[in-house]
Design a binder for these strands. Structure first.
Length: 140
DNA sequence: CATGCGTTAAACAATA
DNA sequence: CTATTGTTTAACGCAT
């Protein structure tokens, strides 16, 4: 149990950072949630494109991926590697219709993860730009 | 069987 | 004062 830094579990380390570089699936987005119309949509789609190390049926719950991963992706996708809480919510909502109106309290979970994990760090405006009061970024 | 991890709920301090 | 944001506990369920 050394530890060093558990951070996200990167498979074995031979497939480099797929998650970080594999954000190609969200490229322009915009028409990702275009096939709406049914309240029984399954979502969990943008990812089926990924390799396959995480099949969509780990006996989990309804969540396609861990909140941790979603937050990670959201921040990584950000223009400057940092996002305010509200934008994180927004990012998730825009990419995963699942959260549109299902669970109650997933936002709470997001905040919880942001605070709990060492992977995310809170930063203030520092001496950069004026907009953006506080944001989270990935703590490498 | 015990421990660790992730998720959810909820009680709150701190700010905006 | 209200709403949002941030931190922290505790309780479960599941995997190791």
């Amino acid at each position: 149990m050394d530890l060093a830094l558990p951070i996200i579990k990167l498979e074995k380390g031979s497939v480099e950072d797929e998650e970080l570089t594999n954000l190609n699936w969200l490229h322009e987005s915009k028409n990702l949630l275009n096939s709406f119309g049914d309240p029984v949509l399954r979502s969990v789609s943008p990812v089926q494109d990924l390799d396959d190390d995480t099949p969509p049926s780990p006996a989990h719950s309804d969540l396609p991926y861990d909140a941790n991963c979603l937050i990670f992706m959201a921040i990584e996708d950000a223009p400057s590697k940092r996002l305010p809480v509200k934008d994180i919510y927004n990012w998730i909502l825009e990419h995963f219709p699942y959260f549109a109106n299902a669970p109650t309290g997933w936002k709470n979970s997001v905040r919880h993860n942001l605070s709990l994990n060492k992977c995310f760090k809170k930063v203030d405006k520092d001496r950069s730009q004026v907009r953006m009061p506080k944001s989270f970024c990935i703590n490498l």
